[in-house]
Design a protein around this nucleic acid. Structure first.
Lengths: 152, 152
DNA sequence: TTCGCTGTTGCGTGCAGCTCGCAAATGAGC
DNA sequence: GCTCATTTGCGAGCTGCACGCAACAGCGAA
């Protein structure tokens, strides 16, 4: 694959970068790397994992991307609506490419994460809404429990 | 109220302490204070809030209860089944008196916490179970969203 | 009442996840 | 190539929590 092809308009990474630039932001190597890694993992990773993946890629060339850079960029991507984060509990937050409306089921024992479409919540969410006036955002926090393999 | 009355058998604080002692544990002032505060707030507080409430009570007498003491005791109470903790997200965990099976709705904007009975989850939980083999523990993590007052 | 064993406490330290301020580096329009 | 606002790396710092250790204090026995 040539560089020209990689940076073609259809590349979602370049699309996001273009939007960034349009808003007066700068396109830097760090940002390109983080975005590319994010898309290749199709989202769904912690800031640390992201940093490590980026590191593996560029450390050989004497480069690295600092954690605070990653956090700042992820915040910015979240404002742009490109990613959104959710809490799997016990400290870690995971970042996902956001358009897909899904939520997480996290196994308390083995830590496995299952994604579920939001539709599954619909009935539940509407009964909560009716009863408490509370409007659930199913994405932001994970549901804890035990996965297929760990159920007693 | 006399001390004798306060330490009467019917007092849930003393009941828990008695159970602790039965298991070879020690009954200390710190534990009595933490438990009493926990029951007076009817659970539902963070370790920090607990420490502050206890502090307000005894600081005048030159006493205080250290955070690590609180964490250790809460862990122990959890093993005893007296309290259970859940994650409201963004770092804080709240501790509740446990027999009551309920879950939490946390408002992302104002932070208000609403308790809901677990029954509300039943239908949702069973459809998740059927579809993913995943058994939800609705208590351990909170559902995020917007409360009655903050819904747009 | 006193003694001694052992559970408990306070304190300091440390770690993970994340944020912030600052000076130096680097895009991007001219 | 210049200029300047935006980013970056770095270090310090903060919160929530866990842990090791020495000192303290219940509580059953003597």
């Amino acid at each position: 694959m040539t560089i020209a092809q990689a940076t073609a308009e259809a590349d979602p990474v370049e699309l996001v970068l273009a939007e960034l630039r349009r808003r007066g932001g700068r396109v830097t190597t760090a940002r390109r790397l983080v975005l590319r890694t994010l898309f290749e993992r199709s989202g769904h990773c912690t800031a640390r994992e992201l940093a490590e993946d980026v590191g593996k890629r560029v450390r050989a060339h004497g480069l690295d991307v600092h954690m605070s850079t990653i956090y700042r960029f992820l915040d910015e991507l979240e404002e742009l609506g490109v990613v959104s984060h959710s809490h799997l509990g016990h400290g870690r937050a995971v970042y996902d490419l956001s358009p897909v409306g899904h939520s997480h089921l996290v196994c308390e024992l083995c830590g496995a994460v299952t994604e579920t479409p939001n539709e599954l919540f619909a009935a539940f969410a509407s009964s909560v809404k009716a009863r408490y006036g509370f409007s659930i955002d199913p994405h932001h926090f994970a549901m804890a429990g035990r996965c297929r393999n760990c159920v007693v």
